[in-house]
Amino acid sequence: MIEIFTGYFGSGKTEIALNRAVSLTAAGQRVHVVDLDIVKPYFRSREARAFLAEAGVDLIMPNGDWEDADLPVVSPRVLGALTSAEGEVLIDVGGDAAGALALAAFAPILHKRGYRMFLVINPYRPFAGDAAGLQALRLEIEHASQLRIDGIVSNPNLGEKTEWEDLLAGYAQVNAMARGLDLPVLMTGVTERWAERLERELAERAGWSQGERPAGPRQRVRNYLLPPWESEEGQVNRIGPPFH
């Protein structure tokens, strides 16, 4: 199965894809990350290429002079990964119609091989709270990519400032958004700081309402990416050992 992650800029879709790749690799699976994000010049999977290589994740991206281009440059390796790569294939794609166009060329292959496309929602980012805007985004992505969005990744966070109350309120907000879109929440992101507490609360607390309970499997999220203006060498770099 191929997994595709899309969403508004700032939703955390790339962080979700990177963390999922590292988690699957740590569990013994072979993982390929395809960077098809042509929309933004930073916060892309390729910015963590050195770390991904160290973690054992195969990153497929534009090569050489084109690797930092904000252009629709697609490596020939993408076709090979989508048709015959063994293991898990995760695709990080731009979060609007222009970004989704990069997927359209591969739509027949994806339909044949099988895929799931996730819309990553962070309710604390601009535009995410606008139900009409989310529905318009969904339709734009589906039309441009010629693929369907299967469900939501709930990813409420404020980076390192995320508090426990932010997490719980955010899950409830995304659950409501998912109902409005008539899409299931298929995965829940949890900031690494609160991951263990969430598991304890889910095991011990019986009073979770359906509207507030985080749905689907949970993915711990460590922030691997920093904007260039916050890193020492002008390049995104927050590297640490993968968690288990």
Score class of each variant (00 low, 15 high):
184 P>H: 14
73 V>Y: 09
120 V>M: 06
15 E>M: 05
171 Y>M: 06
229 W>G: 00
148 R>Q: 08
35 D>R: 02
101 L>Q: 00
18 L>W: 13
155 N>W: 07
85 A>C: 13
195 A>D: 15
120 V>R: 05
232 E>Y: 10
96 D>C: 11
113 R>Q: 07
49 R>K: 15
112 K>N: 12
69 A>H: 13
60 I>H: 10
14 T>H: 12
152 I>G: 07
15 E>F: 03
235 Q>E: 15
217 P>M: 00
106 F>A: 02
169 A>N: 09
22 V>S: 00
9 F>K: 05
89 V>A: 09
14 T>W: 11
240 G>C: 10
92 D>I: 02
9 F>E: 05
202 L>M: 11
223 N>D: 01
138 R>E: 00
113 R>F: 05
93 V>K: 01
9 F>A: 15
234 G>N: 07
88 E>C: 14
53 A>P: 09
188 T>Y: 03
131 A>N: 13
88 E>W: 01
77 R>N: 10
97 A>F: 08
56 G>E: 08
142 E>T: 01
38 I>C: 08
44 R>Y: 13
39 V>G: 04
66 W>G: 00
3 E>R: 15
178 A>P: 01
79 L>W: 09
179 R>D: 06
110 L>D: 01
5 F>N: 06
16 I>Y: 04
90 L>Y: 01
104 A>M: 11
183 L>I: 01
182 D>N: 14
78 V>A: 03
189 G>C: 15
236 V>P: 14
124 Y>A: 09
19 N>G: 03
243 F>W: 15
117 M>T: 11
14 T>F: 03
37 D>F: 01
66 W>Q: 14
51 F>E: 06
143 H>A: 06
29 Q>D: 13
129 G>K: 13
97 A>L: 08
2 I>Q: 02
148 R>I: 00
164 W>F: 13
50 A>C: 07
172 A>P: 05
16 I>M: 10
128 A>R: 11
130 D>S: 10
217 P>Y: 02
231 S>D: 11
209 S>A: 04
96 D>A: 03
163 E>T: 08
112 K>L: 00
124 Y>R: 01
175 N>I: 11
151 G>V: 05
181 L>V: 06
163 E>D: 09
41 P>S: 01
107 A>K: 08
163 E>A: 14
111 H>K: 12
40 K>W: 07
100 A>E: 00
117 M>S: 09
199 E>M: 14
134 L>C: 07
190 V>L: 13
191 T>Q: 12
46 R>D: 02
177 M>P: 00
144 A>S: 08
231 S>W: 09
45 S>P: 08
34 V>P: 08
156 P>H: 06
77 R>Y: 12
207 G>S: 14
234 G>I: 14
206 A>M: 11
244 H>W: 15
71 L>P: 01
213 R>K: 12
102 A>K: 08
195 A>V: 14
135 Q>G: 05
1 M>T: 08
44 R>H: 12
242 P>T: 11
131 A>R: 15
189 G>Q: 11
220 R>A: 01
66 W>F: 07
94 G>L: 00
141 I>P: 14
27 A>T: 04
190 V>P: 08
170 G>V: 07
113 R>N: 01
